[in-house]
């Protein structure tokens, strides 16, 4: 990635301004045309550097106040089946197979956002029953201690990392 692209992506991660032509502002600031900015974003999506464009929301502000990390023990040959099914739930935002430390049997992680305790339990039970998972653990969210977006493309390390 060249320095000009890095500079643009660094600018974009400040978030889009709420104005008629947010990309034009960025283009003018960095000496691009508006089209070049849009094209670069599209290219980065194509290359997978950008996963998606859009909003980050706070689930608890949307009435999803019963949030829990649920960790499951899933056999290796069932991971894809369970993973794809869990990913289909709107209430599940994060869904990963993870490497585990010794003495930790739970290799599948789901972050569930429900509106009520009942709903949370229902989702957990549905998944458990459907895939015959009996060994899992619920870590209810007690308190958010930090939530930010990562700042990529730091200026001081220009050219050093890839």
């Amino acid at each position: 990635m060249d320095e000009k692209t890095r500079e643009l992506l660094r600018e974009l991660q400040n978030g889009f301004k709420l104005e008629t032509r947010p990309f034009l502002r960025i283009a003018n600031k960095l000496g691009y045309s508006e089209n070049q900015v849009l094209q670069t974003i599209k290219d980065c999506i194509e290359e997978g550097i950008i996963r998606r464009i859009g909003a980050a929301v706070r689930p608890e502000k949307m009435g999803h106040s019963c949030n829990a990390l649920v960790v499951w023990q899933v056999a290796a040959d069932k991971i894809d089946e369970v993973g794809n099914d869990a990913a289909g739930y709107r209430e599940i935002s994060h869904c990963y197979e993870r490497e585990c430390p010794p003495n930790w049997p739970y290799n599948f992680f789901t972050m569930i956002h429900a509106k009520t305790d009942e709903e949370l339990k229902e989702i957990i039970q549905q998944i458990a029953q459907k895939h015959e998972l009996s060994n899992y653990k619920v870590y209810a969210t007690e308190q958010e201690l930090k939530k930010t977006s990562m700042r990529y493309f730091p200026e001081e390390s220009d050219g050093n990392d890839k």
Partner: peptide, 20 residues
């Protein structure tokens, strides 16, 4: 944004693709 429902509007990067 003001009431905190939205905390960001912009691109989301794949940290692995960026070498992180």
């Amino acid at each position: 944004i003001e009431n905190g429902t939205i905390r960001y509007v912009g691109p989301f990067f794949d940290s692995r693709k960026l070498g992180y």
